[in-house]
Write a protein that binds this DNA or RNA. Structure first.
Length: 653
RNA sequence: GGGCUCGUGGUGUAGCGGCCUAACAUGCCAGCCUGUCACGCUGGAGAUCGCCGGUUCGAAUCCGGUCGAGCCCGCCA
């Protein structure tokens, strides 16, 4: 089983490459000095061919004088037969080979014996009768199953041996799908006249948004670069530069805590277009998304085309989310109109103090009706109450609808039978429903809690069809939200987002001093020319038509609490650029990892990344992050003085 | 910064105060087997139960700490 002696008849081992003598087709082909065909391509029609194949030993079946080896590569599996009677030398090697050895096999393609074809394999009609075999590489016993796609493996172990994990079929398929996806994206953009431009990874730090990753400069000790959170400013500068349509598959970095859908480095499809309005950007992006989806996952049903376009306020009212999962209903219902109009209570009162106080404070009482949950146990209800409390609700009232269609509830003693009946009617609830009610003075809390409950219950109750892709747009987000701590209006998405034309006049302060924003400012009502695209309850991407006039940009920045000096300190480059003829422009950024995850039925973007990090930002395979060498410190003029947090760097193994 | 869950032969799990000299499956090793494809049969090796400390007559099991992983809140668009 040690590598067989010198190989004859192949060109491996040749030490002096000569000028090419093969055709471009052959050069682009998969054949190499080690193989004529891959492990996935032989068919019945190939019977009789003499071939070389190379790959990994996927599985062995040993019958003494007869050995089967399934040889594996990225393209598939091919069964190799070693027969002691026909090729004793090869059979002897085969008997001693183990899983994950790398072999080169020469032999004849043969139809399998009658009744022994394997319908589960694309190559199942044939096998290669081995004439000779070379062990190209031996392997230790792998630390987990590579040949059983469904076997669960501890994720840390997978990451530590990622190169083995990637050999497993599900990972191969996900990475191949992602590659096809990016290819389809590129094709769409090139067809639409976009040009792909790379932007720097070493950028200037901006204190806005997420925490930057910092790279110290050796040439300018004491100064740092920042890794891009996104190429936002650069793509706008490319529009000023007249590139008209730019895109990039861009790596982005954010030094924030990780989640299943968040890694410190991730990939965005970043694009920007000149001379466009919201409609034009959304039209292109939607067409591109459709084409990519159809090309990559042709069997997945797309819920609605054209994609629904939902106004932000409507999204919050109906779904309690700015990234609604529209595969199912379970919509939020406003109960206030029905339960404040009943006889026998005071004007506008419901009789239930919790509701009345919320409404009196300008809040809301809203509900969802969960089908089939009326018979929930006390502990199941308690669990839902706990869920609601985690997200800021003070409580969660419920009404269960019995077989007769009548509601029963602990709060019936406050609301009265007619109050409960009004709730059942308003919620359009039917027998078996459990109506869940949140009341709060803060509308955002009501929407958020019910929105999360809606999403959670939609998945738990199986209301969301896993095969459906439900894309939708949410547009006209508020320009700003009030940052009480810093006493300024904070950009909801990005500080360059444009305001919808009819709201331009709202970009003023109540005091009249543009640098003295307050909570009462009309700016709080201004809507942005900003759109997000959501897929099955995940935010896939977001963008906007930008402000391209310097005067308006300065007004918007003033509301965001930037003095003139700060504005120039942070955004001087782009402000100056806007003095030299900026075209109207807009664009979007989409999370490639999230998109790939959703297209492969994953809930975790690590599953579509070749080398992701753990939740503590570590790479268990490479041992990153690691301590720098002392020379690296001194060259950069740095010294480690300790950290306040308790996180400990991971030691390389 | 916080909450929850998990850590037992190579892998995945069971065991949750004494009956554990730690079980099962698979993998691994050896032998047999010429038509299998998760081959089969026989035999064998392999874990001081993440680590440290405590409680107890007795700890894989209970408690505290710590390290690591995952999910979530905060954070992040």
């Amino acid at each position: 089983m040690r590598a067989a002696g010198p190989r004859s008849g192949t060109i491996t081992g040749m030490s002096k490459p000569s000028p090419s003598s093969i055709s471009p087709e052959a050069a682009f082909g998969l054949a190499t000095p080690y193989r004529d065909v891959t492990c996935g391509e032989l068919r019945a029609a190939d019977a009789g061919r003499e071939v070389r194949v190379s790959g990994w030993v996927h599985r062995r079946r040993d019958y003494g004088g007869l050995h089967f080896i399934d040889l594996r590569d990225r393209y598939g599996l091919t069964q190799i037969v070693f027969n002691e009677a026909e090729a004793p030398e090869a059979a002897e090697i085969a008997a001693r080979v183990r899983n994950e050895f790398v072999l080169e096999v020469r032999g004849i393609v043969a139809l399998r014996l009658d009744g022994t074809a394997n319908a589960k394999l694309a190559t199942g009609d044939i096998e290669v009768k081995a004439a000779s075999v070379t062990v190209l590489s031996e392997s230790e016993t792998p630390p987990f199953y590579i040949n059983e796609p469904d076997a669960p493996v501890d994720e840390n172990l997978r990451l530590r041996y990622r190169y083995l994990d990637i050999r497993r079929r599900p990972m191969v398929e996900r990475l191949m799908l992602r590659s096809r996806m990016v290819q389809a994206i590129r094709e769409c953009h090139h067809r639409a006249g976009f040009i792909e431009i790379e932007t720097p990874i070493l950028l200037k730090s901006t204190p806005e948004g997420a925490r930057d990753f910092i790279v110290p400069s050796r040439l300018q000790p004491g100064s740092v670069y920042a890794l891009p959170q996104s190429p936002q400013q650069l793509k706008q500068l490319l529009m000023v530069a007249g590139m008209d349509r730019y895109f990039q598959i861009a790596r982005c970095f954010r030094d924030e805590d990780l989640r299943g859908d968040r890694q410190p480095e991730f990939t965005q499809l970043d694009l920007e277009m000149s001379f466009v309005d919201e409609q034009r950007v959304m039209d292109f992006v939607e067409a591109m998304i459709l084409e990519v989806s159809k090309s990559v996952v042709p069997d997945r049903q797309i819920q609605q085309v054209p994609f629904p376009r939902i106004d932000y306020h409507e999204a919050m009212e109906r779904y309690g989310s700015d990234k609604p999962d529209i595969r199912f209903g379970l919509e939020l219902v406003d109960l206030a109109p029905s339960i404040t109009a009943l006889p026998g209570r005071g004007e506008g009162l419901t009789g239930f103090r919790v509701f009345d106080e919320a409404l009196a404070a300008g809040g809301r009482v809203k509900a969802i009706a969960a089908p089939g949950m009326a018979d929930s146990s006390r502990s199941q209800i308690d669990e839902l109450v706990g869920f609601a409390r985690r997200f800021g609700a003070k409580g969660l009232a419920h009404v269960s609808v019995g077989a007769d269609g009548a509601g029963a509830s602990p709060i019936a003693k406050f609301l009265g039978e007619d109050g409960i009946a009004a709730i059942v009617k308003a919620a359009a609830a039917v027998a078996g429903d459990l109506i869940l009610i949140v009341a709060d003075a803060d509308h955002d809390v009501v929407a958020d809690v019910l929105g999360r409950l809606r999403q959670e219950l939609g998945l738990r109750l199986g209301l969301a069809d896993e095969n459906v892709l439900a894309y939708c747009w949410v547009y006209h987000f508020p320009m700003y939200h009030w940052d009480a701590e810093k006493s300024r209006w904070d950009a909801t998405h990005n500080p360059f987002s444009g305001v919808v034309p009819e709201d331009v006049e709202l970009l003023v302060t109540e005091s009249g001093d543009p640098y003295a924003p307050s909570h009462q400012d009309p700016a709080g009502r201004a809507r942005a020319m900003q759109y997000d695209v959501a897929l099955n309850g995940w935010e896939l991407g977001g963008g906007s038509v930008r402000i391209h006039k310097r005067e308006l940009l300065e007004r918007s920045f003033a509301l965001q609490g930037y003095s003139l000096e700060q504005m120039h300190e942070r955004f001087g480059g782009i402000l100056e650029a806007f003095d030299y003829g900026a075209p109207p422009h807009g664009g979007i950024a989409m999370g490639i990892d999230r998109w790939a995850a959703l297209l492969t039925h994953q809930t975790n973007i690590r599953e579509v990344m070749a080398f992701p990090k753990t939740q503590s930002g570590a790479d268990p395979m490479l041992g990153a992050p690691s301590e720098p060498e002392p020379e690296q410190y001194s060259e950069l003029g740095l010294r480690f003085v300790g950290v306040q947090s308790s996180s400990t760097p991971v030691k390389p193994q």
